[in-house]
């Protein structure tokens, strides 16, 4: 059984239209896989099926060989599958550190123990994971800031830090480059490469061809709910048909 995340024959329809129509996808560890294609071809739906925000009508999703198709998103997160959102998801009511901490401390039994006034299980580990993620993304100096006072570009990094604090095996990133300027994009690229080097499996849904070309090892191209091409990034991106399918008609 392969490690990482695998989708097999995933189908998901909305109101009679098959937004995702029998898709296979592999996100192996230690590599960056990119999923590209124009708007409205089912990328986001497939992404939601992988992350657990929605369930596929047919097909299976496997995490390190284990069938997680029926699990809701929070259960998948606890098994080591983290995601970020296209519209950045941070919690403005918490500080930077608390945002990251939320990602680190979701284990069973924590709530009940805390209500009884007992320390949560793995509290020290959660704190250490939080510190590590903050340092990795250079957020340590602003750890006590309210999250909503961070500059916009930094919010993406904060969301990423929260995802990393859970020490995921697989990380799904939905347009991580959106809203970032050139310097922030470069920083993001460096962080993602470092994570892959440590053996994490990364899936990138991204509009920015440049970022994909710079980062991805494998590229999948989606059109009308199906995979129309897959292969090493350089070959796939050089393909004229892919270029034609990419831009909106």
């Amino acid at each position: 059984m392969s490690a990482g995340l695998t989708a097999r024959g995933v189908v998901r329809g909305f109101g009679g239209i098959r937004a995702v129509d029998g898709v296979d996808l592999a996100v192996p560890p230690g590599r960056i896989t990119a999923l590209v294609g124009p708007n409205g071809v089912g990328k986001s739906t497939l992404f939601d099926c992988l992350a657990g925000a929605t369930r596929p009508d047919a097909g299976r999703v496997l995490l390190a060989g284990r069938d997680i198709t029926a699990l809701p998103d929070h259960a998948r997160a606890r098994l080591g599958l983290a995601r970020t959102f296209q519209q950045v998801a941070v919690f403005p009511g918490l500080t930077v550190e608390q945002n990251v901490r939320v990602g680190a401390e979701q284990r069973r039994g924590g709530t009940a123990r805390a209500l009884l006034g007992l320390p949560a299980p793995g509290r020290a580990a959660a704190r250490a994971a939080t510190d590590r993620a903050l340092r990795l993304l250079d957020l340590d100096p602003v750890r006590d800031w309210p999250a909503d006072r961070l500059p916009p570009g930094t919010l993406r990094l904060l969301e990423l830090a929260r995802a990393l604090a859970a020490a995921p095996r697989v990380l799904l990133l939905d347009e991580p480059g959106a809203g970032l300027d050139l310097a922030q994009t470069a920083r993001l690229a460096a962080v993602l490469r470092a994570l892959t080097a440590e053996g994490m499996a990364l899936l990138l849904v991204e509009h920015d061809v440049e970022l994909v070309a710079r980062l991805a090892d494998t590229v999948y191209v989606m059109a009308a709910g199906r995979m129309v091409a897959r292969g090493p990034a350089r070959e796939v991106l050089a393909d004229r048909r892919v270029a034609a399918a990419w831009g909106e008609p």
Binding site: Q87, V88, D148, P152, G153, L155, A178, G179, D181
Partner: peptide, 10 residues
């Protein structure tokens, strides 16, 4: 211009 938390035009 900002959309929610993100800035689209810098």
């Amino acid at each position: 211009v900002r959309y929610g938390l993100l800035e689209a035009l810098h």
